[in-house]
Amino acid sequence: MEARGLTLALGGKTILESVDFTAAPGEVTAIVGPNGAGKTTLLKALSGELKGVGPVRLNGTALTDLRGWQVAEMRGVLPQASALAFPFTVIEVVRIGLSSGRGGGDDRRALQALARVDLAGFAGRYYNDLSGGEQQRVQLARVLTQIWEPMSEGQPRWLLLDEPVASLDVGHQFTVMDIAREFAASGGGVIAVMHDLNLTAMFADKVWVMHRGRVAASGAPRDTLTTDLMQTIYGCPLQVNTVPPLGIPFVLPQTRVS
């Protein structure tokens, strides 16, 4: 996945400014940065939802040369929030993912996907009755049924996630990030907008730090999540890799023993 010189200005405000972006299959690529940095906008450009911001290539082919269903075969998108107009049940929402692209696919896959996001017992519930975090996981299951195999005809498939763990509890943050890891480990590509820097450090192979519509840094977590950079872009005096003052408890995902 590759993009060159993405630029977007709306209403006199620059939202993206000549952003060059690449992500490799087999890796989890995280996009981090403060609110309004342009992360969602960048992801929309990569997914093809936002057109005319600059050339984006998916597995070497320009997005503009592909038809909608062909793109849908190769990448799934988890948006930040999804409202549903009618009283669909959870399994019906997930099944909508099955019908994407060329269509087809096995009904059992929808149930498997639900089990994978730890919602096995929720198939018959109304989607609109679920909590925000549960809805987010249903949507992930829908995206997973769309691109079930991380590789298709020798080509990697792509998982584009906008804040996939934003409204999840710690346990389910792991559930979702493990899915992303596995997807990448099997040859697919994952691009995730992240707010949790600890999870990013733990799960991402590459990190892109966005700030005011530009790429402030990119590289391995070790090289990008630095005290200097974090202080600059988030505007608060944070210390990376520093044990908090005595007495304040802290819970780090990195302490999970596998």
Binding site: S47, G48, E49, G68, W69, Q70, V71, A72, E73, G76, V77, P79, S82, A83, L84, A85, F86, F88, V93, I96, G97, S99, S100, G101, G103, Q146
Partner: peptide, 20 residues
């Protein structure tokens, strides 16, 4: 039918699913 089902989740999601 397929297009209207996808549209229930919004135009963006429908487009992600490859619906014209």
């Amino acid at each position: 039918a397929r297009g209207l089902n996808a549209l229930a989740m919004g135009e963006a999601v429908a487009a992600h699913l490859g619906i014209p």
